[in-house]
Design a protein around this nucleic acid. Structure first.
Lengths: 419, 419
DNA sequence: CCATTTAATTCAACCGCTGAACAAATCGCG
DNA sequence: CGCGATTTGTTCAGCGGTTGAATTAAATGG
C-alpha cells in the first residue's frame, strides 16, 4: 500500500500473480494498446492481429473496449496502400486521460500536462527561489500551479488520471521526502502537507499523486521522448548534486530500496578531495555545480542551478579560458565515472541532463574521450553521449509521462474507473 | 534464433506477447510450479489455491498436468496440522528433468548435474592446465566429461533437459566465444567445434547447450542457492581478471549487448597504473590475482587461479605480513569499486566469489570499511559483504541451475516435449 | 460493372477457469 | 465406537473470452 505512492511501472500482471479468466482480457487490452502506442504509423485491427498472433475477431473486440474507454480513436485519413478495403488507422486518443507532471526545484516550480500520445499539452513554469520557503509554503504554491494546469487540461477535454511530483532528493515510501539537501527539506511528508487538496484525495483507493526523485523521472522523460530511443541508458542530471536515472531494458531501475543512481559519489579520485558524504574524491566534488563554478573563477555564489549553467555556457561561448578549463576538468571526471558505469552495465547511450544538457557542447568531447579510452568494448560497440532532448525540464514531463504510461501498460485500471 | 544460444531467463510469456486461449494454462502451470518451487515446505493444492487466488479446481487440474509431466511429485509424509482431511504435500520431482552445467577454465574442467529441486546430484572435476590445449581439444575433453555426467544422470533416472557452459570470457551470439584471454581463446565457435556431439544437436529446434560468461552463471548459482537470498546483488569473481555478475530483482542483468559486469576496469585510481585495456588505474591492476601475488612478494608465477588463492590464503593464515598487506590493499581497491557500484545500483548484498571466496576472511573487513565509508545510504541501510556459498565452483552449478530454472519458469516447454 | 482483394464483423464452437456441490479423510467429543 | 465438524481434493454444469470460418463492407482494377 505504501509502495503505491512510489511511481513504479507495471511490467506485467502475470509475472508473479495467477492468471484468472478475466486476466485474459486484461492482458490483451494491454497488449493491443501497447502495440498501438509503439507503432510508428496508425496500425489497423488486422495488422495488430497479424503482429500479435491474436485473431482479428479478438482484436476487434478489444479495440471496441479501448475506444469505448476513450483510450483509442480511429484516425480518419488513412494512407492508401493498394487494393482491398482500406484499413482504419488506430491511434491513441488525445482527448482521453492525461498525466500531470509536477516539479519542485531550487529555483522554480513546474507543472505540465501530457496526454496519452505523449504530447506535452501544457507546460507552466514559475521561477522563484524556494530555498527560503517552508515545505508547506512551497507545496501550497505548487498546488495552485497544479490547479491551473488541471483547469487548462479540462478545457481541452482531458481527464487527469494522476500526477507525479519530481523532487531533488531521496524519496521513501508513502511520498515521504527523506532528504532534499538543496531545498533544505528533511522528512517532509508531502501527502500530509497536501491534505485537503484534490491531489491528495485517493480515487478508488489509488492516490493520484506519486512522489519521486527528479533524476528518475527525468530518465523516464527521455525514455518516453524518443519512441525508437535506446532501451538501456544512463541519464545523468548535473545540478548542485549529481544524480543518475538508470533505464535498463526499457524500465527504470530503482534499486533494492529505491535509492539507486547516486553517481555523485562515484570515486573518481579515491585519495582526493573530501566529500560531505564522508568519502573522498567523489564525482560531485569535481563535476558538481559548485566545483565547476569555483574552477571557472566565479564566486562561490548561491546561484540557482539553471542560472549557473547558463552563466557557464555564456562564458564558454565567449571563450573564457578558465571556464573552458573548468568544463574540461569536469568532463574528464564525469567521463571517468561514466566509463565505470558503462563497463559495469554495458549501456549504449549516456544522456547528459539537467544543467549538463546546456553544457553538453563542452562536456561531451571529454566525456566521450574518457569513455572510448576506458570502456573495454567501446572499440566494437560505440557508446553514444548526447544531451537530453527534453533539456532541463524533463523531470516534470517524465513524471506526467509515467502517469500515462501506466495507463498504457495496464488499461484495465482506467477502464474500470469510468464504467 | 541466435539468441537461443545465450542463456536467458524467461520472465513471463505475456510481458510482450499476446495472450491466447492456451496461454492461460501455460501461465498457470508456471505460476503453480513456481509456487511449489519457492515454498519452504511442501504446499497443498488448497494452499496454493488460497495463495494464488486460483480455484482449487484449477489448481488440481494444473497439478495433474505437472505430475503427469514428471515435474511434481506428491510427498507421502505430510506434517499433521489439525482437524480435517490431511493435505498431500507437493514437491518438485527429483526424478524428472535435470540440468547439465559445464565449465571450462584455465586449470580445470567441470561438469555437474542439478535436478529440479536444485540439488547437485553429480559433480565431476578434472584438473588440467588447459592453456596449452587447443579449443577443439579442450572441448573434446569437456564433451567426454559431459558424457560421463550424462551417464550418471541417466543411472539416477534423470532426463537432461539442456546444458549450459561457463567460459571465462566474452560470449557473443550463437555460442561464439569472442575472447577468453586467460584461455587464449579468440572467436571460438563452440557449437561448431562440438558438431556431431549430442550436446550440439538441437532437440525440437532448441539447442541443448547455451554458452555464457562464468561470472554471469556464478551469480545465478548464488541466486538459486539460497531460496530466501537477496534478490539484488553483485557477485564479484576474482581470478586473473575480475568479473561481476549483476542480479537485479531476481534476474541476471546482461547489459545492452550481453557484456555487462566488466568491473575489472572500474577506475579506482584514475591516474594510476596503466592497464592493458588502455585506461589507467583499473581495479584489475590493484585487486587482480597478479597484482595481489606481486604485492605479496610471490614471483609473478603463472599460477592457476585456484592454486594462487590457496597459496595466498595459506600465507595469510600463517600471518605473513607482506601477504596481509597485499590483501588489505586489494580489499581497499575492491571496496572503492564496490562502493561505487552500490551507490549507483542500491544493492544490499555483495558476494565475493571465485578466488575471492577463499580470501574473503581477509578481504571482507577492508571492503566493508570502504563501503560503509563511501556509500551514502550505508548508515540506515546496511550492505552485506559475504563469500559465495558455492565457493569457486558456482559457475557450473549456476549453469545447471539456469537450465532447470528455465523449466520452472516455463514448464510448457518441457511438457510439450514429452507428450 | 463485376471480379478481386483486403478489412472488419458476426456467430457457433470450444478451451479453460469458476463456483458450488460432493466425496474423502481425519480429529474431537461424547 | 460413532457422529459431527473440518479441511482437502474432485466432479460438473456454467460461463467468459478466444477461435475460426463465414459474411459483410469498402475499395481497386480491368
Amino acid at each position: 500500500m505504501a509502495a503505491m505512492w512510489q511511481c513504479q511501472e507495471v511490467t506485467s500482471a502475470s509475472t508473479a500473480g495467477a492468471v484468472r479468466q478475466g486476466s485474459l482480457r486484461e492482458l490483451n487490452l494491454a497488449v493491443v494498446l501497447r502495440r498501438i502506442a509503439a507503432a510508428d504509423r496508425p496500425p489497423s485491427r488486422a495488422g495488430i492481429a497479424a503482429d500479435t498472433g491474436l485473431t482479428r475477431a479478438t482484436v476487434s473486440a478489444v479495440v471496441d473496449d479501448l475506444i469505448a474507454g476513450r483510450l483509442v480513436a480511429e484516425a480518419e485519413p488513412e494512407p492508401r496502400t493498394g487494393a482491398g478495403r482500406p484499413a482504419r488507422g488506430l491511434v491513441l486518443a488525445s482527448d482521453g486521460p492525461a498525466g500531470l507532471g509536477l516539479e519542485v526545484n531550487v529555483d522554480y516550480l513546474a507543472a505540465c500536462v501530457v496526454d496519452l500520445t505523449g504530447a506535452v499539452r501544457h507546460h507552466l513554469v514559475r521561477r522563484a527561489d524556494l530555498r527560503p520557503a517552508s515545505p508547506a509554503d512551497a507545496l501550497a504554491r505548487l498546488a495552485a500551479l497544479a490547479a491551473e494546469a488541471r483547469a487548462a487540461a479540462v478545457r481541452d477535454g482531458l481527464t487527469l488520471a494522476g500526477a507525479a511530483l519530481a523532487v531533488p532528493g531521496l524519496v521513501g515510501d508513502g511520498g515521504l521526502v527523506r532528504l532534499a539537501p538543496n531545498l533544505g527539506w528533511r522528512d517532509v511528508d508531502v501527502p500530509a502537507l497536501l491534505a485537503g487538496h484534490p491531489l491528495a484525495e485517493p480515487v478508488d483507493g489509488i492516490p493520484p499523486l506519486v512522489v519521486d526523485n527528479e533524476a528518475n523521472l527525468a530518465a523516464l522523460g527521455e525514455l518516453y521522448a524518443g519512441p525508437a530511443g535506446p532501451r538501456s541508458f544512463l541519464h545523468v542530471t548535473g545540478e548542485i548534486g549529481i544524480g543518475a536515472g538508470i533505464v535498463l531494458d526499457g524500465a527504470l531501475y530503482r534499486g533494492a530500496r529505491g535509492w539507486s543512481g547516486e553517481i555523485g559519489h562515484f570515486p573518481v579520485q579515491p585519495q582526493g578531495r573530501p566529500c560531505r558524504c564522508g568519502g573522498q574524491g567523489c564525482l560531485e566534488r569535481y563535476a558538481g555545480q559548485e566545483a565547476i563554478l569555483a574552477a571557472a573563477g566565479l564566486p562561490g555564489a548561491e546561484l540557482p542551478a539553471d542560472t549557473a549553467a547558463t552563466r557557464l555556457a555564456d562564458l564558454a561561448e565567449a571563450g573564457d579560458p578558465a571556464t573552458l578549463a573548468a568544463l574540461t576538468d569536469a568532463g574528464t571526471a564525469l567521463g571517468v565515472a561514466v566509463a565505470g558505469v558503462v563497463n559495469l552495465l554495458d549501456l549504449d547511450t549516456v544522456v547528459l541532463g539537467g544543467g549538463y544538457a546546456r553544457l553538453a557542447p563542452w562536456l561531451r568531447p571529454t566525456v566521450e574521450a574518457e569513455v572510448s579510452r576506458r570502456v573495454l568494448t567501446a572499440a566494437w560497440a560505440p557508446v553514444t553521449v548526447r544531451p537530453a532532448v527534453l533539456g532541463a525540464q524533463s523531470a516534470a514531463v517524465g513524471g506526467a509521462g509515467s502517469v500515462v504510461r501506466r495507463i498504457v501498460d495496464r488499461p484495465v485500471g482506467w477502464l474500470a474507473r469510468t464504467t
